[in-house]
């Protein structure tokens, strides 16, 4: 593993049980330490599948994954301790308050006592949720839920944070708050890997992107590199459309 690389993926393949074709077809990727890495692609390209395998949700069919010097197969529980995951869908207990949710998930990461309480207080404050934290999550707006969903993944100060489409269905205000905080986290040394199909957002936010379609990485580099690589393209969106051929997706 190269110095400065935090995630190394070689020949990652995933064929779901009963599927005719692999969802991910031999992906190889290197993600640098402290990067904001965007995994971009149309619906059904294999983004969620790739991220899920990296988070240890289910095993790959084949391929090698190394995270922060640890092998995925042998060191899964150690890897989970340094990784934070923000799922695509809200994963919170609707009848518990934000504080109760965070207290539970914090404990599941092995945090407890005053340390945990202070962290929860700090993040609720940062995300403007201190008042709302006493209410049940099912009384929250979509944007508020997204923010709690994010806090639950960063209480244990992960080295690597995975986010699967964190800005889908979020109003512009909440989206900006989230992006700002992700930048702050990144400034403090967290490597961020995120998926999106908002090319505009990715172009400004990511330090590196990879474009995935049909389970294969078809292009990668910094946003600027990609834009200059294709004639007549002025932004990431036109590169993306050119590469994925304007095909309609389900």
């Amino acid at each position: 593993m190269e110095q400065g690389t935090i995630i190394e993926i070689q020949g990652l393949t995933k064929t779901f049980r009963g599927a005719l074709e692999p969802a991910v077809k031999g992906i190889s990727l290197s993600i640098g330490r402290n990067e904001i890495f965007g995994l971009l692609g149309p619906n059904g390209a294999g983004k969620t599948t790739t991220i899920s395998i990296l988070c240890g949700l289910f095993p790959a069919t084949s391929g090698k994954i190394n995270i922060d010097g640890m092998d995925m197969k042998g060191d899964l529980s150690n890897i989970k301790q340094i990784v934070g995951v923000v799922p695509q869908d809200i994963a919170l207990y609707p009848t518990l308050t934000a504080r109760e949710n965070l207290d539970f998930y914090g404990h599941m990461y092995g945090l407890s006592g005053k340390l945990l309480k202070d962290k929860i207080d700090m993040w609720l404050e940062n995300f403007g949720l201190t008042e709302a934290a006493k209410r049940k999550v099912n009384t929250y707006s979509g944007g508020m839920k997204r923010r709690v969903n994010l806090i639950a993944a960063i209480l244990h100060d992960p080295k690597i944070l995975f986010l699967d489409e964190p800005t889908v269905g979020v109003d512009v205000q909440s989206r900006n708050v989230i992006i700002d905080y992700l930048k702050k986290l990144n400034d403090n040394g967290t490597t961020i890997i995120y998926t999106s199909h908002h090319m505009d957002e990715a172009e400004h936010f990511c330090t590196k992107v990879a474009i995935i379609d049909n389970g294969t990485i078809i292009e990668q580099g910094t946003p600027a590199e990609l834009i200059s690589r294709y004639d007549g393209c002025h932004n990431l969106e036109s590169v993306f459309l050119q590469l994925t051929k304007r095909r309609l997706r389900d």
Binding site: C55, G56, L57, S77, N78, K80, Q81, V83, V85, P87, D89, I90, A91, L92, Y93, Y105, M108, Y109, G110, A152
Partner: peptide, 10 residues
């Protein structure tokens, strides 16, 4: 989704 999240936790 809590189970999903828990599977990503140690």
């Amino acid at each position: 989704g809590s189970v999903f999240r828990l599977h990503t936790m140690p």
